[in-house]
């Protein structure tokens, strides 16, 4: 239940955030934020609009700079890395941006090969095979490899973005609202895809989401962002017992009840 637990060894942690402060101009987004992400878990980040969920993700991967505090990823303080070390650690995480953020001038297969070419030395033949493998693993048809992002639907672009994020078999995958903008069937499929890949590859998943169904279906733990920090972090069952008004409203509101009901149905059936 507690947000941080210093008794766990740091080797069991994929990420450890302590006292992080991020700020845009005079606006403080996070203040004294602590968070632990364990290796191999799927962590869901929830919070109201404007609480800085995506900012937190961007701060961890270094796209925004934290004003204060310390962020350890895979046991290393990301702020203190040399450019070379940073390049190495970047190969150990993958990021899925909201709309895939695929390079529009490259085909899907070429998009997946970008990190492979940058971080490894593979033969062209192997590059093509690995790209085709990843395309198949994220559930895209083989023909999708030769298509350009503009020729794909939103759901397919997300899958292609996930394939690129997973290209290097990263230890951590960051997902920014992976199911936003998908229809319920597509969203459920995407949840199952993440769960399947997580089982197969064993990576840590850091997922920003608004989707209560996703939280129910795949998250091991949930961290709630409010009041500029992570106020609680725990399993779904623990969330349901929280008395904080926002958390209570979030997990007991009409939509949450519907999501809980369907989840229980599926457990029974």
């Amino acid at each position: 239940m507690e947000v941080i637990n210093d008794s766990l060894p740091s080797s069991a942690m994929a990420m450890r955030l302590r006292g992080v402060k991020s700020q845009f101009g005079a606006q403080v987004i996070h203040d004294d934020l602590d968070l632990d992400v364990r290796r191999g878990e799927i962590l869901g980040i929830v919070g109201g609009s404007g609480t800085g969920k995506s900012v937190l993700l961007r701060t961890i991967i270094g796209l925004n700079k934290a004003r204060e505090g310390r962020i350890d990823v895979l046991g290393e303080d990301v702020a203190g890395l040399s450019p070379k070390e940073r390049h190495e650690i970047e190969a150990r995480w993958g990021v899925l941006f909201q709309d895939g953020a695929l390079f529009s001038s490259l085909t899907v297969a070429q998009n997946i090969q970008v990190p492979l070419k940058e971080h490894t030395e593979m033969s062209e033949e192997l590059l093509d095979e690995i790209a085709a493998l990843k395309i198949s693993m994220v559930g895209l048809p083989p023909e999708a490899g030769n298509k350009y992002p503009s020729e794909l639907s939103g759901g397919m672009r997300k899958r292609a973005g996930l394939a690129r994020a997973l290209a290097l078999d990263p230890d951590i995958v960051f997902l920014d609202e992976p199911t936003a903008g998908l229809d319920p069937i597509g969203a459920a499929e995407f949840d199952q895809l993440i769960l399947r890949l997580h089982r197969a590859m064993g990576m840590t998943v850091f997922m920003v989401t608004h989707d209560l169904d996703s939280l129910h279906a795949i998250c091991d733990r949930i961290a709630v962002l409010a009041e500029k920090r992570v106020i609680v972090c725990g399993s779904m069952a623990e969330m349901l017992q929280q008395s904080h008004p926002w958390i209570h409203e979030y997990f007991h509101g009409p939509r949450a009840r519907a999501a809980t009901a369907t989840n229980e149905d599926s457990l029974v059936g």
């Binding site: 297969a109 093509d128 085709a132 493998l133 089982r199 197969a200």
Partner: peptide, 21 residues
């Protein structure tokens, strides 16, 4: 178990990739 599972995954996802046009 993990190695066997991975090899199964490969077999399941081994689909011919069409050559670029």
């Amino acid at each position: 178990e993990s190695v066997a599972e991975m090899l199964d995954q490969m077999a399941a996802n081994d689909k011919p990739h069409p050559a670029p046009p």
